[in-house]
Design a protein around this nucleic acid. Structure first.
Length: 468
DNA sequence: ATGTCC
């Protein structure tokens, strides 16, 4: 009696090349062996292929059983098309990364914002919509990085008159980089169940406690400046005119960075992709890991918001005023949204401002150029998004090597900006022209007002700090 | 972005 594929499956073979080879060889080479003995022999092979690796007859079966399964997920040959805003000013590397992202089998749609530049996996300024999958590096390392602005009924000439007081307010009430408050303010976020239920979040709770209310390094800042409202903002009862405002840019600190690092590793382990796409590994939202990441990401987003609120609370106390309005938005995050047909999509915005119809947002320029308060127009092609800033025109390394401190000082002086901290890598010249970037995204957002920085604090960098 | 490699 001849063996069948089903007999082999009974003893542990799975559908595939090894099964076919075994069936073929055993019937040709062991014609005289009784059915039961053939089955017993193949059972030994499938249970311990290593001991048959030099077997005169069955070596090919053993080799096939031992070959690691190629579980690499293939990219689609043709990537989906996507809209680019301001293509002329976007570096090649960012375009290539976006093209790779558009080939993922889970990708539904994409768009590239005019401040785009190369990042890890998805470019900064990249927007990617997927079907029931979340890509940790599609959100970015600084989960929930966001902008927050409070607007005050305080005459703007106070900024010049009381400049030293405002500087002191920033120096005494903001912390950047490694620095944290000696006595951090408590916050209800620490009661969230994610801090006890998710291991990586639990491990970060003490550090999150230490860091709450602090700001990050790099391009993060807290600044006083002048808001010029040009179009009435009914959403927050703001009439056209000049206002004093506080603007902050910061993220989820060590908490978000460690959540991102952990779940990117999990995703890359579970979801093998070709080399050029490996950082785009995703987590299926129906899996436990996917659901864990979603909860952890949302917690990191709320934590980032809590940090901003404490920053603005300290400023409000220092100013002895209550703000007229507060505007804030994430720009490194993933959201469950609906496409034009009403289907749920997962929209990753990695350095992109949500710009759904009527949605308020803030797009900063640089330390000495204006930023803008915007209202989204909800353009489908942009996946309801806009840029999250001017975008770099120079890498941090290049900026540090080529920009002169004297040149920056002159630029700041001419713009009437007082700067505390920062390094040359954040110099205004390292960024694209914000006006041109706004021009590229006219269809995406309506500009309601501008914000001109006046007293800016960023993370200090000893190497470039003046000692006075 | 990040005690910038547990």
């Amino acid at each position: 009696m001849n063996l069948t594929g089903n007999d082999l499956k009974q003893i542990g073979f799975i559908e595939g090349k090894a099964l076919g080879l075994a069936l073929d060889l055993v019937e040709k080479q062991y014609t005289d062996l009784p059915f039961d003995d053939k089955l017993a022999l193949l059972k030994q092979v499938v249970n311990n292929p290593t001991s048959f690796i030099n077997d005169a007859t069955l070596a090919p079966v053993a080799a096939e059983l031992l070959r690691p399964l190629d579980d690499t997920i293939a990219l689609n040959v043709d990537g989906k098309s996507y809209q680019i805003y301001g293509a002329d000013a976007i570096e090649q590397g960012a375009l290539q990364q976006m093209e790779t992202a558009m080939k993922l089998p889970v990708t539904v749609a994409g768009a590239l914002m005019p401040d785009a530049h190369q990042g890890y996996g998805l470019p900064i300024g990249g927007v990617l919509a997927t079907n029931n999958a979340v890509i940790p590096y599609g959100v970015g390392v600084d989960i929930g990085c966001r902008m927050c602005m409070t607007i005050y009924d305080i005459p703007t000439d106070k900024l010049q008159e009381k400049k030293e007081d405002f500087k002191k307010l920033l120096v005494n009430n903001t912390k950047f980089g490694q620095a944290t408050f000696k006595k951090p303010k408590d916050h209800e976020i620490f009661e969230r169940k994610e801090f006890s239920e998710l291991q990586i979040v639990r491990e970060m709770k003490d550090r999150a406690w230490q860091q709450i209310g602090s700001s990050g390094g790099g391009n993060h800042f807290v600044e006083f400046g002048i808001v010029e409202i040009s179009n009435t903002i009914n959403e927050c009862n703001l009439a056209p005119g000049q206002y004093l405002a506080v603007l902050s840019h910061s993220g989820s600190r060590g908490l978000g960075a460690n959540i991102a690092r952990h779940y990117t590793k999990v995703a890359m382990d579970k979801c093998k992709l070709p080399q050029e796409a490996k950082h785009l590994a995703w987590l299926d939202l129906n899996t436990e890991e996917g659901q864990e990441y979603w909860l952890a990401m949302n917690l990191a987003g709320d934590y980032a918001s809590a940090c901003h609120h404490q920053i603005h609370e300290r400023m409000a106390i220092g100013l002895r005023e209550t703000p007229l309005a507060m505007i804030e938005n994430h720009h490194n995050f993933a959201w469950k949204e609906k496409d034009a047909n009403g289907n749920e999509i997962i929209v990753h915005r990695k350095g992109a401002t949500p710009a759904g119809k009527g949605v308020l947002g803030i797009i900063p320029g640089s330390m000495a150029t204006p930023g803008f308060i915007v209202r989204g127009k909800g353009l489908a092609e942009s996946i309801n998004s806009a840029s999250h800033g001017a975008g770099r025109t120079m890498s941090r390394t290049k900026a540090k090597q080529t920009i002169l401190q004297g040149h920056v000082n002159k630029f700041l002086k001419e713009a009437g900006v007082e700067l505390i901290g920062s390094g040359l890598d954040e110099a205004p010249m390292a960024y694209k022209d914000i006006h041109q970037v706004m021009n590229y995204q006219k269809e995406l957002v309506e500009v309601l007002g501008s914000f001109m920085p006046k007293i800016v604090r960023m993370c200090g960098d000893e190497k470039f700090q003046e000692v006075d």
